[in-house]
Design a protein around this nucleic acid. Structure first.
Lengths: 139, 139
DNA sequence: CTATTAACCTATCGGTTTACTAGGTTTAAA
DNA sequence: TTTAAACCTAGTAAACCGATAGGTTAATAG
């Protein structure tokens, strides 16, 4: 399950991407428009800034803005920062690998191979989609 | 992330499927062989029985056995019972649908469309794999 | 220079879930 | 009648989640 944090983070990024001018967008504006608790959103935006997706400007007229172009931001990167691993099991994670304590050998694990397939399928979808794709779409 | 419960459940089912004879397999045997806490495993096996994957026999020489053929058990079904929804967000779940409180309209939600794609990709993999496929595989 | 605005920081917190554990009861075979 | 196994109920420590509270810092407007 996707955490609210990740969900809100994606929505916020999409909101900012939709603004044509590059003027900073305030957390309060996003909060109202997307129905997200402002304080919670603030902490998420901060995290997105610290991880290099957003820049910020303090004080009056301040806010958050995209650092890269929306087409250059893959959803894999966003989700990895906000949610953590994309894989359903640490032992098949590319970026957050961890050995299972119960498995003596991954090669003979019945779960392992299945979860690699799931991971690759998800990775494929999330790697093909950029912020541009999800911010502007014609439903 | 897949819970240990689901992971253990899948491993246990695979273990039982691998036994050629249809004699009941004891929880203790699976527990030892797969390095799973016995009591925890018991509760999982019980759940798998109640949801129609396993049958059981009490008393000496008792244990758990498959009710259906391994080829007939899709991994989607197993995961839905043990883990719950396959979708990463309730609003795109086929079997556990729930509306988001923050979204006024799913059609305009930037997360929604993306998560439908992820769901379909996962569903595709998990629907194609049966217990037979994951129990016997040549790594 | 001052007031205002908005990002930034730290700490806390109630609720839920997770992964077990304990300790028994029931059923069936030897 | 002993033993082995499933079955049942309860509890629990730790982690995580989604938020809230209450400030500090920095930048702009007047």
């Amino acid at each position: 399950m996707l955490s609210k944090k990740t969900k809100y983070g994606i929505k916020a990024l999409a909101y900012i991407a939709r603004k044509k001018d590059r003027k900073p967008v305030q957390a309060s504006e996003i909060s109202e428009s997307e129905n997200i608790s402002q304080k919670f959103l603030e902490s998420i935006l901060l995290e997105l800034r610290k991880s290099g997706f957003l820049g910020s400007k303090k004080g009056k007229g301040g806010g958050y803005y995209l650092i890269k172009e929306p087409e250059e931001i893959k959803m894999t990167a966003v989700i990895r920062v906000l949610e953590g691993p994309i894989a359903m099991v640490p032992c098949v994670s590319l970026n957050y690998y961890e050995k299972c304590d119960d498995c003596p050998d991954e090669k003979t694990c019945s779960v392992h191979k299945l979860m690699i397939q799931v991971r690759d399928a998800s990775l494929n979808v999330l790697g093909e989609n950029t912020l541009q794709d999800i911010a502007f779409f014609n439903s």
